[in-house]
């Protein structure tokens, strides 16, 4: 029997910008169809770590493997084609195009025209974006633009989905829907979710990895993490104080 190859394996990833070490020797292993939450104070290096996973940044040190294949140094478009999708912290959408066109650009890759169209309609329905399908995304509310971005990611059916603050700026109702959606996606795909909203984390989380000052502070079940005094100190405690 060979060893089970994890979906994502980041080993000793370090990202330095001049004298600043934004990500410091981070290792993270994610299994197939796993759901992982990343939490940590602002500037802890979560988004930078995401950027090394998607190829937007080339890590200064360390290796990143997808199902055993070394992808360190590949370009974002190459990594995307290996089945990694990301919703970035600040929505990256095609503002001048309609919601429908946004999702179509994503869905058309590797599909016939008819299949792409079917996928767009399915995805828009899944995210309840049909009412705004023909509207320019630049004119939509922040929450809706985030949904459009998530729709573009889902339309490509990636095996690994990275969500950077998917609930930011959403209403309570939208947050609950996002949590439901994440659980639904997680039935077939692996996710890594960065979030600040602790209620949201409680809704979805199983395993939580805590970042602090570019390092992994701890990694455990959500209850253990939220009960941990160190986590409270660096993050929740300060926020409450």
């Amino acid at each position: 029997m060979s060893e089970i190859v994890p979906l994502l394996e980041a080993r000793n990833v370090t990202m330095r910008f001049g004298g600043v070490t934004a990500v410091d020797d981070v290792s993270l292993v994610l299994g197939e169809v796993e759901l992982r939450c990343l939490i940590g104070p602002n500037g802890a290096g979560k988004s930078t770590f995401f950027k090394t996973l998607t190829g937007q940044l080339n890590p200064t040190e360390g290796r990143i493997k997808l199902r055993g294949q070394d992808v360190t140094g590949l370009l974002p478009n190459q990594i995307a084609r290996l089945g990694v999708g990301i919703k970035t912290q600040i929505p990256n959408v095609f503002n001048g195009l309609t919601a429908y066109e946004n999702v179509l650009v994503a869905a058309q890759r590797g599909r016939s025209a008819a299949m792409a169209k079917a996928m767009v309609e399915k995805t828009l329905a899944r995210l309840r974006l049909e009412p705004v399908a023909r509207r320019q995304v630049g004119q939509l509310a922040h929450g809706q633009r985030q949904w459009v971005e998530i729709a573009t990611v889902l339309a490509q059916e990636p095996d690994l989905i990275l969500l950077d603050e998917p609930a930011a700026g959403m209403t309570h109702e939208e947050v609950e829907r996002t949590a439901e959606l994440i659980k639904e996606i997680n039935r077939t795909q692996a996710l890594v979710v960065v979030e600040h909203d602790m209620q949201f984390i409680r809704m979805i989380a199983q395993t939580v990895t805590v970042f602090n000052q570019g390092k992994v502070l701890m990694e455990d079940h959500v209850d253990a993490v939220l009960a941990d005094q160190r986590v409270r100190d660096v993050y929740i405690g300060k926020a409450a104080a």
């Binding site: 998607t54 370009l75 995307a80 990256n92 573009t152 490509q156």
Partner: peptide, 10 residues
Amino acid sequence: ENETRAMLLG
């Protein structure tokens, strides 16, 4: 419209 997004979509 958005080069980063296009790259992230492959």
